[in-house]
Amino acid sequence: MRKLGIIGGMSWVSTATYYERINRLVQKRSPPMASAPLLIESLDFCQLYALREAHDWERAAGVLIDSAQRLEAAGAEGLIIGANSMHRLYDDVAVAVGIPILHIAEYVGLAMKRAGVSSAALLGTRNVMTESFYRKRLVAHGIDLLPPNLDYVAMLDRIIYEELMVGKVTREAERTLKTIITNKAQDGASAIVLACTELDLVVDVDANVLPIFDSTRIHCEAAANWILGQEAVN
């Protein structure tokens, strides 16, 4: 098996999910006592929280680059960034290391293309929903994305940053997400992309009015396949 590095802590809640899911997938396809060879650096999310200004993103890029280089020096043969929003810095980090980084949106796009999805709504943090760095990866796979609803953007930002990232799960958040997804179906979406690694805490991925493409599940599947040297199939 190949050794994978995880840049985590964004948030610790989703990093724990990554660790568990990757190991379960690896164990399922390996001898019963197998564990995934992982190197995890859990960053202090206070340095990377709700970035807005260009200089904030430049500082964050330095934090992620340093982390990636430490993981590479420690023996990681490949990397994942355990957060959708931090893939805004993917290109900066990728050129700073000599090992591959598995891009979360690339694997989501591949999964949707294989499923024959033509239109979808993207749900996540403000920068994921409104900026181009994530959307263009999905569009490149032939996915037509609905424009973001700014009211939903504000609702989701609050739920993600104030609740889910500190491990708080409420029925109100579950109802809000169910309403948003129902409305997106009425707006013409044929699928939903959960482009936040914590949103599956409040969305029933396997039973909803629309097919749900959970970026965390898909990324973990890609990571397990990479560790095992298998073709990534989502």
Rank of each mutant, 00 (worst) to 15 (best):
A36L: 10
A185K: 12
I7N: 03
D44L: 14
E77A: 15
Q27S: 13
K3R: 15
G78H: 13
Y134D: 02
I7L: 08
K178E: 10
A232Y: 04
L177E: 10
G167F: 04
D204V: 05
A60P: 04
M86K: 10
A34E: 12
Y19F: 14
S67R: 07
A140Q: 15
K28W: 05
S30Q: 11
A34K: 14
R52L: 04
L43R: 00
Q69I: 07
Q69V: 05
I101P: 00
R126H: 07
N84L: 00
K168L: 15
R21I: 14
E72N: 06
E58Q: 14
M112N: 03
N23G: 14
P37N: 11
A61Y: 02
R29A: 13
M155V: 03
M155Y: 00
M155C: 09
M33H: 14
V139G: 08
T125Y: 01
G124A: 03
L71D: 11
S42D: 06
T125N: 10
L177P: 04
E174W: 05
L4Y: 11
P148D: 03
W12P: 13
V97G: 12
I104P: 00
E72W: 00
K136H: 14
L210A: 09
I180T: 06
R59F: 08
Y152C: 01
T125W: 07
R126E: 04
S190F: 11
A140L: 14
L210W: 04
G124I: 04
Q230F: 10
M1R: 10
R29D: 12
A61S: 15
L51N: 07
V13L: 11
G8P: 09
R2T: 00
I22A: 12
V97L: 04
A96S: 15
G142H: 09
L156W: 09
P211M: 09
G8M: 12
V117R: 08
N84R: 01
P31C: 05
L145I: 13
M112W: 09
A140H: 10
A54D: 15
S190L: 12
E198M: 12
N183V: 08
G167N: 12
M129V: 05
V108F: 04
L228Y: 03
S132N: 08
G9W: 00
V193A: 08
L79D: 10
K113T: 13
I181Y: 02
R88Y: 11
E162A: 14
I227R: 07
S11Y: 02
G116V: 11
D66T: 08
R114M: 13
R135L: 01
D187G: 04
M155L: 09
V205R: 11
S11N: 09
E53W: 12
A207D: 14
I159Q: 02
